[in-house]
Simulated scan of single mutants.
Amino acid sequence: MTTYLPIIRSRAAELRGLKELPSPTLSKLFPIVELTRSRRTSKNPNGDIQKSVEAICDIMEERPFIVDLTSLASLQNAEFGQVLDDADGFKAWTDFALASLPDQCVPVVHLLEPFELQPFQLEVRRLRKKFSRVAIRVPTSYRDFNELLQACDQAFSNLADVVLTLDAGYVNQNSVDGAVPRLAEMLSAINGRKFCNVSVASSSFPNSVVSAGGEDDVGDFSLNEVLLWNQLHARFPWLDYGDYAAIHPLDFTGTVTNWVPRVDVMLDDTFYYHRYRRSDGGYVRAAKEARRDNRYVPLSSWAQDNIQAAADGAPKGLSPSFWIANRVNFHLARQVARVGR
């Protein structure tokens, strides 16, 4: 059975979407959590990473999850520069993991490029003092993948203690065709090695639906991450599924514009949206149009309940964050159902 390993950043909206899954659905996920700075308050002025750890632990409870650190500058603070210091085999990271992460966590082993064997072995040895499994997340641009695989053969007596994720990042219509052969090359190089899980992760969710080609009030897009996985899974049937939980994977660049109320409906391999300015009906109209759209496929979930409430004229949230959480929740629930068929 396919395991679903979504990459989820510890921002409030993404965590809310995760939290609102029913327990049986949440238990079917093996999420890769990217720690970000936490929400700044008077008692937490720096947005300490430890608060993000506490937030995800409150949701996951005793369930296992993978822990990484975000590489997006917009979601970091000064603490990241310290914890991500690569000196002495990423000692700062291993010290943080050993002190701050609960036992059920699966910490990521950070990599140097070009690959260096001794720092890798040192980092693995430290993390294995506490954690039964570790994870390795490799971007498709990483040049030393074969050397990394050989190092895994040396560092682990049992590769079933390693979760491997190949990360293709943002895959739009122009780049997905190039991502498939590169991922196939990497998967072929695994050559029978029996890791705990091997997944690919990517996201085609655009930074702006209108700039990416949608209309101002309505549009739809293919979920290239699903289409990419389908192609690879046909060749590598042991491959698990991953994505970015319907979130754009890159840092925001460009001009900040006013948010236009939008309701996203996540389907198996596509999504569509309805979008109307407040003066033109806002979330209520967007939800009504989304719900009556002939593409709508019902799915019992917190997200569907919210869309129905808004369509009935009583939206439970009016902030962008709330509706991002709604999209994340809808997508996670939909993909759990898809991969479980």
Rank of each mutant, 00 (worst) to 15 (best):
I8L: 12
R16S: 04
L18W: 01
L18N: 00
S23G: 12
L26Q: 02
E34H: 03
D48C: 12
C57T: 15
E61Y: 08
P64E: 11
V67L: 07
L69W: 03
L69G: 07
S71R: 15
L72W: 14
S74T: 09
Q76N: 06
Q76E: 09
Q82I: 15
L84N: 12
D85K: 15
D86N: 15
D86W: 12
A87E: 09
D95A: 09
L101R: 04
V108E: 00
F115K: 09
R126I: 02
K129D: 07
S132E: 08
A135R: 01
A135Q: 05
Y142M: 13
D144M: 09
Q150I: 08
A151Y: 01
C152M: 04
D153K: 14
Q154Y: 10
L166Y: 06
V171L: 04
N174H: 13
N174C: 10
V176D: 05
D177L: 13
A184Q: 07
S188A: 15
A189S: 10
A201M: 13
P206K: 11
G213A: 10
E215M: 09
G219I: 04
D220K: 15
N224V: 08
N224T: 08
V226D: 01
W229P: 04
Q231L: 09
A234V: 12
A234S: 14
F236S: 03
P237S: 13
P237L: 12
A246K: 04
T255P: 00
V256E: 14
N258V: 14
W259P: 09
D264I: 13
D264K: 14
L267F: 02
H274R: 08
H274T: 00
G282N: 02
Y283M: 07
R285T: 12
K288M: 14
K288F: 01
R292L: 09
R292V: 05
R295L: 11
P298Q: 11
S301C: 08
Q304C: 05
N306G: 13
Q308H: 04
A309C: 05
A309Q: 13
A311Y: 02
G313L: 07
F322Q: 00
W323M: 06
W323G: 00
A325T: 07
V336Q: 10
A337S: 07
